[in-house]
Write a protein that binds this DNA or RNA. Sequence first.
DNA 1: TCCATTGTTCGTATTGTCAGAACAACGGAA
DNA 2: TTCCGTTGTTCTGACAATACGAACAATGGA
Lengths: 127, 127
Amino acid sequence: MKPLFHPSLEDVTVEGILHALSDPVRVAIFIEIAGSACPRTCSNFQQIREKPVPKSTLSQHFKALREAGLIRGERQGVEMHNTSRCAEIERRFPGLIEAIINAHRVQAKGSGCAGAATKRRPAAARA
Amino acid sequence: MKPLFHPSLEDVTVEGILHALSDPVRVAIFIEIAGSACPRTCSNFQQIREKPVPKSTLSQHFKALREAGLIRGERQGVEMHNTSRCAEIERRFPGLIEAIINAHRVQAKGSGCAGAATKRRPAAARA
DNA sequence: TCCATTGTTCGTATTGTCAGAACAACGGAA
DNA sequence: TTCCGTTGTTCTGACAATACGAACAATGGA
């Protein structure tokens, strides 16, 4: 099995982090992992907001989060244990992750989470 | 001329903001606008980091920033006056913009800005 | 050995992005 | 007024990124 790639902390970029977290599915995954004490597997996320996410898509999302430096993945038998790299990132970009997670909390609260974030409609694209 | 579209504050999403600012050219534009007292026109950015940016690409980037709710554009004769919406966004997502701008400062300082951010290489994609 | 489970890779359709060319809008000069 | 330079937008084709079903690889238990 190919070993997993994780960028070293100094290779982590703001662009990479923002891009990774600009996807509703990925940010949901990341928030869950970041807020959980024990590691989470990919199969924990086969549904995200009552919506099923295909395995292959999930795998890509996890890869994106790993390569952005947001999570760390560790093969554990047949499954993958994912933990967040929040503490590291906090050292490099203080306050960044917290601000993003907090903003998401605000947004989820405000909209009641009802149908918000249908992917690639950033509140515009009409008119 | 078609009137410009600006999302109202409550339609501004975190995903939209993060996506808009995950592009090195757009974030450079935004930081410049946000840090400037007087409005800036599109033509102020025909070069970004010693690199020329085509007009049409610039126009698209400004549109993306507008539709994400990050800037406000106002036609003033033949040119467009762009101002940031930082203050509004700060009310909705406290600390978010500041954390992102600060992270960019850290990154620019650390790497000496040398060849960093060549677009679409989020520190990974090798191995 | 067989098989169920977990995750990755491959192939293809869809979608988004870049940038040159043509265009539209405005303002000044003749 | 007409002409023209400046500024920004739209159109279009090439290219890159993404989604997801299907096939595959790896592991561990029966």
